[in-house]
Design a protein around this nucleic acid. Structure first.
Lengths: 196, 196
DNA sequence: CCTGGAATTCAACATGCGTTGAATACTAGC
DNA sequence: GCTAGTATTCAACGCATGTTGAATTCCAGG
């Protein structure tokens, strides 16, 4: 009994439609990665014609970039870290693993980075410029970036096996349980981090 | 001046063509992952018509499975580990990281597991049945599988950032350098492993 | 109230994909 | 040496995809 969708502009705020498309794109990219996600599927999820997606966001790559505005993430992670309890490693692990699991952005970006050149560049720049640069001077030593990379690798590998591969041992484990075990690794890699 | 390829069977061993196709498939899957790799590209890489790929290996999924016969990997890894030097963690790290970097199989499987359901199942089964089961009783404790998962996550995350994302700090680092830093993490996760 | 522009759908396009069936060339068993 | 089967290419089908242009409906400014 859904009334046949008619042509032409609708009454109401077009900004809402824009947001709906962005949300749909985030979810679809997270579920199927860049190459697997189709404009048609995103449009359907948003209850909209595929052509409208192009009208608002241009090409598929531009939509991907628009949907993965990662600049907002670091602030929320920093807040979670400042409010956290335990050793630096524990607070880092809880904040980052939590953020990665909660944010479809991150899942979409990671899934796509494994296959798509553009997503790869986006993730690389995000990690290097937005994350690593921010911690650079709070971590001693000349090999600071290598050690940050290894710490990131531990957390990212967990996400990979937990969400993408679905490895039983990790997929069914409690996140706090994992945090407890990942924390000492971060402390080992990073040494004494001064947070905040 | 390449002679126009003529129709019909060629003189010589057809097994060689089969092998060429398998090699091409491995490389192409490693470079572009399951969804990105096309039968046409594989065929071209092997210097062969796309239809021949189907004739020999059936559907694309069947080709993927045939190209990723991972059963042979554990044996070579075990050998590298037995001959290795250093702590258990060091030997594990060197053997597995080395094998992952040397084997296009692994790269293709990992890249594809991020997006494709079938590859995911293949990798999951490989890790659980072929790797984890083999170490199960050599590692103490009830949470052995969780700890193995975390150890695997550290190594896998390194590969992900190094090869897929191309994170500078890891991509340009010497592998032996990484081995030295990953080793204590494995020892931390796994405790005292009895190798061999 | 009228008019220019923005939002929205529809229909279609070109392209690339996995796959198939027929046609041809070689090989092995009788 | 014939004959059944296999290896190989060619041409094509059917489908899904990203993208575009025209048609229609609403909104905002004069």
């Amino acid at each position: 009994m859904t009334p046949a969708p008619r042509r032409g502009r609708r009454p109401g705020d077009p900004g809402e439609t824009r947001r709906a498309i962005l949300d749909a794109a985030r979810d679809e990219f997270a579920a199927s990665a860049y190459d697997g996600a189709t404009i048609r599927a995103i449009a359907e999820r948003a209850g909209v014609d595929p052509a409208l997606v192009h009208h608002h966001f241009g090409t598929k790559e531009e939509l991907f970039v628009a949907a993965h505005d990662v600049e907002a993430i670091p602030a929320s992670v920093a807040a979670a870290m400042a409010a956290g309890r335990g050793t630096p490693g524990e607070r880092l692990a809880r904040a980052y693993l939590g953020a990665m699991e909660a944010n479809p952005n991150v899942e979409g970006l990671l899934r796509s980075a494994a296959t798509n050149e553009h997503a790869r560049a986006l993730l690389r720049d995000f990690m290097q410029r937005t994350v690593f640069d921010a911690y650079q001077d709070r971590i001693g030593g000349e090999d600071a970036r290598l050690r940050m990379g290894l710490a990131a690798a531990q957390m990212l590998g967990v996400l990979f096996l937990r969400r993408f591969v679905g490895l039983d041992a990790l997929a069914h484990a409690d996140l706090e349980d994992i945090v407890e075990r990942v924390a000492p690794v971060l402390d080992l890699h990073l040494g004494d981090v001064r947070l905040g």
